[in-house]
Design a protein around this nucleic acid. Structure first.
Lengths: 340, 340
DNA sequence: ATAAATAACAAAAACGTTTTTGAATTTAAA
DNA sequence: TTTAAATTCAAAAACGTTTTTGTTATTTAT
């Protein structure tokens, strides 16, 4: 690999001149610059990003953590879409993406891993949880490392997050069911701590309350975004409440599980029971029957996240702020008027 | 960020001693080592991977290129699965993943980008094509950079690839149709250059030939792995050949498009026309009707690829060799006995 | 013609590590 | 005792850049 020294020798100048020539400094003679560029091409020279990173303390790299928890990672279609957007946007801004994989480093934390790698900023796509993880998030908040999380309420001088309006989204979903005549509506939630889950539960509550329907705890189950647990939850609710006519699952993947479980119980969707999901992943429209759900703007989320991160990185004084994107009810075939 | 110098100062030793203490060299007094480790913890020290990378010429990072062509990238479920496997396996081996995004660097090539970033090896998940790309692949082959490609026949001293047995897979698919009584079988291909596409076409040919069925060029269309083009192709074949009773699309995504197009023409699947795909992505089983297809071992592909790459990286003398994994016919609901 | 300003370059320090070489001290061997 | 060997550390070079400061030669202004 040709270095700046090789060019300097061949051109008969100093390395500093080569560097400044290639970086368009003004105090270098046009002729020498041309010659240097010529030789650089000839030697197929490309600057070492790692050497440059060492001295500049900028690597043009942004880190990416994800998938601590189940069902949230590369294999989850929702996060996949926002990562896809992040990749495009970050690429346009001239950054590469570093995916942290090192689970084997015991004592390492998000912040130390970032510093170790010298990333300029970092995306967090995970679902928190646990004291240890939480301490790590706090450390990251205070570290000064630009950071933006997806669906995780992280706020600090250089930290923020982007999310959908989960409250309104959930409310919209439940109101849709109520308009169809449903009053006994089950809720298949995520967990108690995730903000997404929490907000959606509140949306569920609000919709019921506004409609004068009493909240019934026996209609509510947490399934931790797991398809397996969603099946269990469905069975439990079915066993407890013979009169349930609709399910609101706060992720499409869980909604699929709910539907499968209902069908195993010889219940037809939507004739016997209506089901609505959340996310609007690609499979929602090809599923049979096509899933009624709340659509999140995945690409916009990735774009907004990248935008915030870029600004944070490039302007030390920029104070990023949380961004909440609207959702949309998309009615397909799994919800219908109540029949009984 | 605490550096090795800070530790040295605080411990009253030289930086070289600190480095050797932390790296378990034997010529350092146990007491001093302990003290140094103590101070390192106290200062929350983590070594700079970039500084280390500069001197060691190893970054514990592997690069990842993908998605030059349409329908092959983060958003493609098939590649997503193998990337997911790669991530896990590489993580276990202590490597992080660097996703190259820089499309804006005009003159840069795969090889120069790798050298620039100093990655220890690189995965190629893309579908070749074009003289320029091809030159880049040759440059990479000859660069000495450990490299393994997915579905792209790249061979060199330190380069190899992993693929499924596309020939046999395709043959299996078509024989399945033939066993069901079909003789007029359409082929929706990728492109002329991709090896996957080429091999699958040959499998199609072989199955027909072995069964004594003449090849009919009017049954063959290339759709470049695009859903849009697959729809066009289906229409063309339908217009040309009234007697076609089955379609073999060489990707599930294209198979979906074929089915939708058939349905738009009031043709039922599988009653009127059978359709078989290739890949067995997750959606294949939830699609309605569930898609009969040829299953690729995605996770195994990722694991094999990583395995080859790790060996190439860690042993300069290792000569990686191509790996071909078996496929499996999974019969669902889109293929049936011929009715006419 | 002289001083001041400018242009064009070089030298050297810095970034944070690893590694080689060598020096000092201690221990063991003769 | 004297010499050899082993132990423990320090100094310095190296990795490939960027950037600050300084130097020389050239131009401009007076």
């Amino acid at each position: 690999m040709a270095s700046i020294h090789d060019i300097a020798k061949k051109a008969g100048v100093s390395v500093s001149t080569v560097s400044r020539a290639l970086n368009n400094y003004q105090d270098v003679n046009p002729k020498t610059r041309e010659k240097i560029i010529e030789i650089a091409k000839e030697l197929n020279y490309y600057p070492s990003a790692v050497a440059r990173g060492l001295v500049m303390k900028r690597t043009q790299t942004i880190g990416l953590f994800f998938g601590d928890h189940m069902n949230s990672g590369f294999d989850h279609p929702f996060f996949m879409d926002v990562i896809s957007a992040v990749r495009e946007e970050a690429g346009d801004a001239g950054y590469d993406l570093l995916i942290f994989t090192n689970k084997h480093k015991e004592r390492a934390t998000y912040a130390t891993l970032c510093r170790e790698r010298g990333v300029d900023g970092v995306f967090l796509i995970l679902t928190g949880g646990g004291k240890k993880k939480n301490d790590q998030l706090i450390e990251l908040q205070e570290s000064g490392i630009p950071c933006v999380a997806i669906d995780l309420p992280l706020e600090g001088e250089r930290c923020t997050y982007v999310e959908s309006n989960n409250f309104l989204g959930a409310k919209k979903a439940v109101l849709h069911l109520i308009e169809l005549g449903h009053r006994n509506i089950a809720f298949i939630g995520g967990d108690e701590i995730a903000k997404t889950s929490f907000d959606r539960l509140n949306g569920y509550r609000a919709a019921l309350s506004e409609s004068g329907i009493d909240l019934n705890a026996s209609y509510i189950e947490m399934a931790y975004f797991s398809e397996e647990l969603a099946k269990e939850a469905t069975k439990k609710i079915l066993a407890r409440n013979k009169d349930v006519t609709a399910f609101f699952a706060i992720s499409d993947l869980m909604a699929f599980a709910v539907i499968e479980t209902l069908q195993e119980h010889a219940l037809r969707v939507p004739e016997d029971i209506s089901v609505i999901g959340f996310d609007d992943i690609k499979e929602a429209s090809t599923f049979e029957p096509p899933l009624t759900t709340i659509s999140q703007q995945k690409y916009a989320m990735g774009r907004a996240a990248t935008n915030q991160l870029m600004k944070s990185i490039e302007d030390i004084n920029y104070r990023p702020s949380p961004i909440t994107l609207p959702t949309e009810l998309v009615i397909r075939k799994t919800t219908d008027y109540i029949m009984r």
